Computed example of a mutant assay.
Amino acid sequence: MDNRATVRKVLIVTLLLNLFVMTLKAVVGYLTGSLSLLADALHSVTDSANNVLGLITTKFSSPLPDREHPYGHQKFEAVGALGIAAFLAIACFEIIQGAVERIIQGGKPVTVSAPQLWLLLLVLGINIFVAFYERGVGKRVQSHILIADAHHTMSDVWVTISVMFGLIGVWLGYQWLDIVLAFPVALLVFFSGWTVIKENLPWLVDEMAIAPETIYNIAITVPGVINCHDIASRGVVGRQVFIEMHLVVEAKDVETAHNITEEVESRLEEKFSPARVLIHVEPPTYKSNHISF
């Protein structure tokens, strides 16, 4: 299923909203002199950059095969998700560096007004909408890039909440809160990046998609199948999986063997669609006890 048009639409909408949020944070951060809010604005810069990266990535991530990419192009999207993790790592470093410099070198006191806090509340509402919007559509169309970006935006929600509490504290006279809260903000950003990496590496390194025992139990129920072995799978269930196996069949002619393998393929595709199944047929005399490699 080619979901790129839907993904592009969501990315364009969220890009416009993220640019608006980034501008508000930068303006309020500049007016107040808040280190944590300026760091949060930097985090929002990565939100916008991620949307642009996603738009570029989805252009090349067609699930349909071609001559140069016979297995499709979905890994482009996973690569894009790892790019998001890289942006998060950069943001984490910048936040910590700014906080340490403020502690060592000092700086102007932070000044906050009630209208500025209300603007941050508006920013928070937009971030929450973007996170749930992206995650909902991402899960519906099985888009790695949207789900990864939703994780990033959700980290932005917690960052903004932390910054708001810090600025409320500054408003009440506790100047040190602005610097102290810059560190947990950095940790939240780092955790978000690690989550994106953890969810996308299996796709890129061809980790097993389906337990070979599960595939074996489905194949062996087909009449005419004596045994199946050397089972392998990769991809992501629900998005695209590739299954390979050797099948020992009870058949006296090629046509019968073909019909048996067609039934095995049909059952596997029904269970794990979309799936591409490759079966190597072997005669009844062949024996092997190795279900997987």
Score class of each variant (00 low, 15 high):
residue 152 H to T: 01
residue 218 I to L: 04
residue 167 L to W: 03
residue 199 E to R: 10
residue 8 R to C: 05
residue 246 H to A: 01
residue 102 R to M: 06
residue 76 F to Y: 15
residue 275 A to F: 14
residue 261 T to G: 06
residue 51 N to V: 09
residue 56 I to W: 13
residue 172 L to K: 06
residue 244 E to A: 11
residue 26 A to I: 06
residue 252 K to T: 04
residue 114 A to N: 07
residue 279 I to R: 07
residue 134 E to Y: 03
residue 42 L to W: 14
residue 65 P to V: 09
residue 269 E to F: 00
residue 257 A to I: 01
residue 87 F to W: 13
residue 2 D to K: 10
residue 27 V to M: 13
residue 202 P to K: 02
residue 86 A to S: 11
residue 252 K to F: 05
residue 233 S to A: 03
residue 89 A to K: 14
residue 208 M to W: 00
residue 117 L to I: 14
residue 189 V to S: 01
residue 288 S to D: 14
residue 107 G to P: 07
residue 151 H to V: 10
residue 145 I to P: 03
residue 243 I to N: 05
residue 255 E to D: 10
residue 30 Y to C: 04
residue 108 K to F: 14
residue 49 A to S: 15
residue 282 E to N: 14
residue 31 L to Q: 11
residue 168 I to H: 01
residue 192 S to I: 07
residue 251 A to F: 05
residue 77 E to M: 06
residue 53 L to A: 12
residue 126 I to C: 02
residue 162 S to Q: 07
residue 61 S to F: 14
residue 256 T to R: 10
residue 45 V to R: 05
residue 249 V to H: 02
residue 159 V to G: 14
residue 96 I to H: 05
residue 274 P to W: 14
residue 189 V to K: 01
residue 228 C to Q: 03
residue 135 R to E: 11
residue 29 G to Y: 12
residue 83 G to D: 07
residue 275 A to H: 14
residue 129 F to K: 10
residue 191 F to Y: 09
residue 95 I to H: 05
residue 224 G to Y: 00
residue 154 M to T: 04
residue 8 R to Q: 11
residue 235 G to I: 03
residue 107 G to A: 08
residue 212 P to T: 09
residue 291 I to K: 12
residue 37 L to T: 09
residue 122 L to N: 04
residue 166 G to N: 08
residue 218 I to Y: 05
residue 108 K to D: 15
residue 237 V to I: 04
residue 42 L to T: 15
residue 271 K to D: 09
residue 250 E to Q: 12
residue 153 T to G: 00
residue 147 I to C: 06
residue 145 I to M: 11
residue 168 I to R: 02
residue 258 H to G: 06
residue 225 V to P: 01
residue 196 V to N: 08
residue 128 I to Y: 08
residue 19 L to D: 02
residue 164 M to K: 00
residue 100 V to M: 14
residue 139 K to Q: 07
residue 287 K to D: 15
residue 54 G to D: 09
residue 155 S to H: 03
residue 277 V to L: 10
residue 54 G to T: 07
residue 123 V to N: 02
residue 47 D to P: 04
residue 228 C to V: 12
residue 267 R to Q: 12
residue 8 R to K: 14
residue 142 Q to P: 00
residue 77 E to R: 10
residue 123 V to C: 07
residue 117 L to M: 14
residue 107 G to D: 08
residue 275 A to N: 13
residue 202 P to V: 02
residue 124 L to K: 09
residue 285 T to V: 15
residue 41 A to M: 11
residue 200 N to A: 06
residue 10 V to C: 08
residue 88 L to W: 09
residue 83 G to V: 09
residue 220 I to C: 03
residue 187 L to R: 04
residue 27 V to I: 15
residue 64 L to N: 12
residue 49 A to Q: 08
residue 116 Q to S: 10
residue 276 R to V: 15
residue 238 G to Q: 05
residue 290 H to N: 13
residue 269 E to C: 15
residue 273 S to M: 11
residue 173 G to T: 12
residue 11 L to S: 07
residue 215 I to F: 02
residue 197 I to Y: 02
residue 226 I to C: 00
residue 109 P to K: 12
residue 133 Y to V: 00
residue 68 E to R: 15
residue 170 V to L: 03
residue 156 D to P: 04
residue 108 K to S: 15
residue 90 I to M: 12
residue 216 Y to Q: 09
residue 54 G to E: 10
residue 289 N to A: 01
residue 181 L to I: 15
residue 132 F to C: 04
residue 180 V to G: 06
residue 63 P to W: 13
